[in-house]
Computed example of a mutant assay.
Amino acid sequence: MKKLFGIRGWFIQSFIMMAFIGTLILFVGLQIYLFNNDSTILDIKMTFWLSISALIIFLFVGGYFGIKGSQLLKGRLTDVLLYISTLRSGNISEKLKINERDEIGLIAEELNQLGNYIQEQSSSLQRLADTKTSLAQSAHTAVVMEERQRLARDLHDVVSQQLFALSMMSSATLRLFDTDQEKAKSQLEEISKIAANAQGEMRALLLHLRPIQLSDDNLCDGVIKLLQELKGKTNLDFQASIDEIEHISKATEEHLFRIIQEALSNILRHAEASKITMTLTEKENYIYLFIGDNGKGFNPNTERIVSYGLKTMRERCEELGGVFKIRSKEKEGTYIDIRVPFVREV
């Protein structure tokens, strides 16, 4: 009964047991009364039927109050359960309404205090991220920038030489048209494919190696410039909705910008997509970032091609106290949802 009906079954069972016990006490009491008094009104048969009548009344009354009491308790416990689920999903701004100062009310109050504590911890994580970013910038900015630019130049030179070599190979292959046109055509198609892959890899790596800093741009302007740059260099179709988020900390901006860079780099390298959808907006003290593509997708449980990039994005999101979710299926694209709480800076 407990497994089937839960709290309601427990309440009804308790009241039914009380009804039986009450009836038994009434019957025994009547028998004691008859034993000590020569009553002409009551006899054993009458006391039996009185006890049966009392049992029926007790069962109806106990069942009614059992159902009403269980509904009240179940409703309050359901509110507590839903609030715990809300906390687990990362929505820490909600509060549980306290109607009574009983044991359940005290539990609700403690849960509200826990929500406040989690919210304070999220703010502390962001402040730590701000401090960490400031220290890292003051100590390593010059070296990191110089190294990134050097790597970008070297990479550009290497890939450009590869493309030049492919161009020479294609020119040589063209001469085969006089002797073996089918073989020449097959080689040209392979060379063209290799060249396209090399260009895509170069763009992705250059995007990944570009400086982290947004310079004087805010997050909105930096993302828009990044998308415009990619749109001019690739054949991808971008559908973006980028809202300007005011009074956001520099560390949060740079973490989110770096997450976007990493996600776009993964798409360029692995997704084979033709369309990218991006949404960046703010609602109720949360920043929402969505990035999706229509590429080949993968199985998140087994695929390890972009595991390092996903791990980096998840770590950056968690440093801000955010929630990182990814959905992907083979031949159906990949979708990333990020929600980050933030406190406006004055």
Results as ranks from 00 to 15, higher is better:
residue 226 L to F: 00
residue 229 E to V: 01
residue 23 T to F: 11
residue 12 I to F: 10
residue 122 S to P: 00
residue 96 L to C: 05
residue 304 R to C: 03
residue 78 T to L: 09
residue 123 S to H: 11
residue 241 S to I: 07
residue 345 E to D: 05
residue 222 G to Y: 09
residue 24 L to S: 11
residue 13 Q to D: 08
residue 69 G to D: 02
residue 309 G to C: 08
residue 74 K to R: 05
residue 340 V to I: 15
residue 225 K to Q: 09
residue 257 F to I: 00
residue 259 I to T: 10
residue 31 Q to D: 06
residue 235 N to Q: 13
residue 6 G to Y: 12
residue 339 R to S: 13
residue 22 G to K: 04
residue 218 N to C: 04
residue 85 S to Q: 13
residue 225 K to S: 09
residue 327 R to F: 13
residue 220 C to Q: 15
residue 245 I to K: 07
residue 225 K to D: 09
residue 274 S to I: 03
residue 265 S to R: 07
residue 8 R to Q: 12
residue 152 A to C: 05
residue 288 Y to G: 04
residue 179 T to P: 05
residue 254 E to I: 07
residue 329 K to L: 11
residue 73 L to M: 02
residue 86 T to W: 01
residue 39 S to W: 03
residue 249 S to L: 00
residue 153 R to T: 04
residue 275 K to V: 09
residue 257 F to Y: 12
residue 21 I to C: 10
residue 80 V to W: 06
residue 296 K to Q: 03
residue 189 E to A: 11
residue 335 Y to C: 10
residue 265 S to Y: 07
residue 48 F to R: 13
residue 220 C to E: 15
residue 41 I to E: 06
residue 143 V to Y: 04
residue 5 F to C: 07
residue 54 A to R: 08
residue 252 T to R: 01
residue 52 I to V: 15
residue 142 A to W: 04
residue 101 R to L: 06
residue 29 G to K: 02
residue 309 G to T: 08
residue 53 S to P: 08
residue 96 L to V: 06
residue 57 I to R: 05
residue 62 G to K: 09
residue 259 I to N: 07
residue 71 Q to L: 11
residue 18 M to Q: 14
residue 169 M to W: 09
residue 272 E to G: 02
residue 197 N to Y: 00
residue 132 K to S: 13
residue 68 K to H: 12
residue 83 Y to D: 07
residue 31 Q to M: 10
residue 297 G to P: 07
residue 328 S to I: 13
residue 15 F to Y: 15
residue 177 F to D: 11
residue 279 T to R: 13
residue 241 S to E: 12
residue 99 N to A: 03
residue 334 T to P: 00
residue 230 L to C: 04
residue 76 R to I: 01
residue 331 K to L: 07
residue 49 W to M: 13
residue 187 Q to P: 02
residue 43 D to I: 03
residue 241 S to A: 10
residue 218 N to P: 08
residue 338 I to Y: 02
residue 34 L to V: 05
residue 184 A to P: 09
residue 336 I to L: 15
residue 323 V to R: 00
residue 145 M to G: 00
residue 110 E to Q: 14
residue 326 I to A: 14
residue 34 L to I: 05
residue 282 E to I: 06
residue 122 S to A: 08
residue 238 F to I: 08
residue 56 I to F: 14
residue 233 K to T: 11
residue 258 R to N: 06
residue 123 S to F: 08
residue 276 I to D: 04
residue 65 F to Y: 13
residue 41 I to V: 12
residue 20 F to T: 12
residue 172 A to L: 09
residue 340 V to W: 01
residue 28 V to H: 05
residue 141 T to R: 12
residue 10 W to M: 09
residue 299 N to A: 06
residue 160 S to K: 14
residue 154 D to V: 05
residue 316 R to Q: 08
residue 125 L to E: 00
residue 12 I to T: 09
residue 199 Q to L: 08
residue 3 K to P: 00
residue 172 A to V: 04
residue 149 Q to H: 06
residue 273 A to P: 03
residue 179 T to W: 10
residue 94 E to Y: 01
residue 51 S to E: 14
residue 317 C to Y: 07
residue 96 L to G: 02
residue 146 E to Q: 12
residue 123 S to K: 13
residue 275 K to M: 11
residue 71 Q to R: 14
residue 298 F to N: 06
residue 201 E to R: 08
residue 113 Q to D: 14
residue 233 K to D: 11
residue 15 F to T: 14
